[in-house]
């Protein structure tokens, strides 16, 4: 059997599974991106707009977190969610939730750190202007985020990109279980391991296509109109 025949044979058998894998990838990484954005944007704004004791330590930790090896995050999440671990009773190990947890930990520092940088890059006079116009604290933060929206969207895009292709943690805490926790990145590893290189490449193409589409939508969000400011 030639490699091409092998690939076709495999393609046939996985055609149904393919969309399932794409959908799960979208769900897991989408949920994780939303959570990281919901936590990371406010955290980044807080760090970018205020001065307090320990801020430098937190900022250094967040920058360090950007370089965390995903496998280490995966291992820590595994040990925590294991039946012998402190949160074992939740029965999250080898479910999509475990993958979401790991991905949030990986992407949060990216979103928070880059949001902070975007806010800090704004003209300091803007803040004074807003205050002199009588903006409250919340209005001020919303307006600053709106002004820095290109950077904030870039922060979310970076967080998304960091986890959609991530494989070490997803493999470890998800287990790459067929129909349950198999996402594009872990499926690529599986097919490579089995020697179906053509199929692995095809799945890689699908992953790229998906990332491209999501980024396309993000960029429209970045470029069109103003960020909603009350």
């Amino acid at each position: 059997m030639s490699p091409i025949e092998g690939t076709l044979l495999q393609l046939n058998s996985v055609a149904g599974a393919f969309w399932e894998i794409v959908a799960l990838t979208f769900r897991v990484t989408g949920t994780a991106t939303l959570i990281s954005a919901a936590l990371g944007i406010p955290a980044g704004a807080l760090l970018g707009l205020s001065k307090f004791a320990g801020r430098r330590f937190i900022v250094t930790s967040i920058y360090t977190g950007m370089g965390l090896p995903p496998v280490v995050v995966g291992l820590a999440v595994y040990l925590t969610l294991s039946r012998s671990g402190p949160l074992g009773v939740m029965e999250w190990l080898f479910t999509p939730w475990a993958m979401v947890v790991a991905q949030v930990i990986i992407s949060f520092p990216l979103v928070a750190g880059l949001t902070m940088t975007a806010i800090e890059a704004l003209d300091p006079d803007l803040r004074l202007q807003l205050r002199s116009l009588g903006a409250g604290r919340r209005q001020e933060v919303a307006a600053m985020l709106g002004e820095a929206r290109e950077g904030v969207v870039a922060a979310v895009v970076a967080g998304f990109g960091g986890i959609i292709s991530e494989v070490g943690a997803a493999m470890l805490v998800g287990g790459n279980i067929e129909s349950q926790t198999r996402v594009l990145s872990t499926a690529i590893v599986l097919e490579t391991r089995r020697g179906f290189f053509g199929l692995a490449l095809g799945l890689g193409g699908a992953l790229l296509g998906m990332a491209f589409m999501v980024n396309f939508i993000f960029l429209r969000l970045q470029g069109r109109g103003r960020w909603p400011v009350r």
Binding site: T31, T95, G225
Partner: peptide
């Protein structure tokens, strides 16, 4: 995109994600 459109997209996405992450039986 205006404000309500953004909000609509976000709500739909969240709903979709939560619905699809339901625990298996």
């Amino acid at each position: 995109m205006n404000k309500s459109q953004v909000r609509g997209v976000l709500l739909c996405t969240v709903g979709l994600l939560l619905a699809s992450c339901a625990a298996p039986e």
